[in-house]
């Protein structure tokens, strides 16, 4: 079985895996990082979004072996102790979640959006950028607002 070595949430991991293992399977099934969710099998829902070398990716569409020597951040790696990441805080304060299943992917996608588009995100941009993240509970209203608020708060990081 091949081996994969990578850094996940600041921790170095070296793990033998089956070659067909997807990144999301490595995270969930082998490393018990179950905050990254699987909501579909066609890379549409975005529940499995993580950061791979600082960029947002859908971990259901990435082979774990292709992440050799990469740096991965998952939803579990955002907060510093009890202090939430500004995007997490914005979601929490803005009631931007109901069942919470899409939430980790939304937060990871939101942060990625800020990195690419800056701290001042207009409504249209956020809505368009959420093309790859589905939510069935909120009608996106509070999610869009939370990403805008989180983006502004990230300026002070």
């Amino acid at each position: 079985m091949p081996n994969v070595s990578l850094t996940i949430n600041g921790k170095k991991i070296s793990q033998p895996i089956e070659a067909r293992t997807l990144l999301v399977q490595l995270l969930r099934d082998q490393l018990s990082l179950t905050g990254t969710h699987v909501g579909c099998d066609t890379s549409q829902c975005g529940c499995c979004t993580v950061h791979l070398n600082g960029k947002g990716v859908k971990s259901c569409a990435v082979l774990a072996l292709s992440c050799q020597d990469s740096v991965i951040t998952t939803i579990e790696g955002l907060a510093e102790g009890e202090t939430l990441h500004p995007m997490q805080q914005a979601f929490r304060e803005g009631h931007a979640l109901q069942c919470g299943f899409c939430t980790p992917g939304m937060i990871m996608a939101g942060i990625d959006m800020v990195k690419r588009k800056g701290y001042e995100l207009d409504e249209k941009t956020v809505r368009e950028e959420l093309e790859g993240n589905l939510c069935r509970c909120t009608g996106y209203h509070t999610i869009v607002k939370a990403i805008q608020a989180g983006a502004r708060a990230m300026k002070n990081l």
Binding site: G35, L84, Q88, L97, G100, T103, P104
Partner: peptide
């Protein structure tokens, strides 16, 4: 929401 925004929920 604290657990759900930190990935600590249990689905």
């Amino acid at each position: 929401d604290h657990r759900l925004v930190t990935g600590a929920g249990c689905f």
